[in-house]
């Protein structure tokens, strides 16, 4: 474990905690894309199939996987529950959360069948999960750019999420130099994901660092 990977996983953990805190404390779901959250549940379910094979990598690895699966499902449950507790906000979310996820799912499914480490169910599922994760934030970014404004907690959530995968890139470089091993598929998807976040990072930098209003394009 190198510092980049630890910081990356902690940033990922923090992003989910910020999101849950965001929903629970402000008791509103405004500006949160349920589509992105459902995609993340799919990412974790397809990636962590090895939990069922009980060939556990390490205690840390296992508890983090269980946390990511359970917390991402919990977020979707919270958002679904707002259908009754905040019917108006829920309806607004559905009206603004209009990104066509069908294209993401089809594209990543094709990518998984074409580019994978082994043509087995587990490896295709893993590859699907990695490609899906690289674009899963798109509905959320799309919603954010359309609304033009957002609660700072949502922006911090997206930033922490983007930081996690961006930190994985130096992690892979570190591991390549120390272990001589690199996962090309994970690297390619990680670079795509970092590029997807790049324009958001620029906006975040302007808003949070420069304290200027987040006037999205």
């Amino acid at each position: 474990m190198n510092p980049f990977r630890i910081l990356g996983d902690l940033s990922h953990l923090a992003s989910i905690l910020v999101l849950i805190f965001n929903i629970k404390s402000t008791n509103t779901i405004e500006g949160i894309s349920i589509k992105t959250q459902v995609l993340y549940v799919l990412v974790f379910l397809t990636r962590y199939l090895d939990l069922f094979s009980f060939r556990l990598v390490s205690f840390y690895n296992t508890i983090m996987k269980l946390f990511f699966i359970s917390s991402s499902i919990y977020v979707v449950v919270l958002l679904q529950r707002s259908k009754t507790t905040q019917a108006v906000a829920y309806k607004t979310m559905l009206l603004t959360d209009t990104f066509k996820v069908q294209y993401i799912l089809l594209g990543t499914l094709i990518a998984a069948f074409v580019i994978n480490h082994k043509f087995t169910f587990v490896e295709i599922a893993w590859s699907f999960s990695v490609w899906l994760e690289s674009v899963a934030i798109l509905p959320q970014l799309f919603m954010l750019s359309k609304s033009g404004k957002s609660k700072s907690l949502t922006v911090h959530y997206i930033f922490a999420l983007g930081l996690y995968r961006t930190l994985y890139i130096p992690n892979w470089i570190w591991r390549y130099h120390t272990e001589g091993v690199i996962d090309k598929i994970a690297l390619a998807a990680g670079i795509i994901q970092t590029l997807v976040y790049s324009d958001f990072f620029y906006l975040y930098y302007k808003k949070v660092i420069k304290r200027s209003a987040l006037n999205l394009p």
């Binding site: 990977r5 996983d9 990922h12 990636r47 090895d50 990598v57 390490s58 690895n61 983090m64 996987k65 990511f68 480490h117 082994k118 490896e123 893993w126 994985y168 992690n171 996962d183 994970a186």
Partner: peptide, 10 residues
């Protein structure tokens, strides 16, 4: 042949 990927990362 493909190295059997043991995905040890999250």
């Amino acid at each position: 042949g493909e190295e059997t990927m043991s995905h040890d990362e999250l």
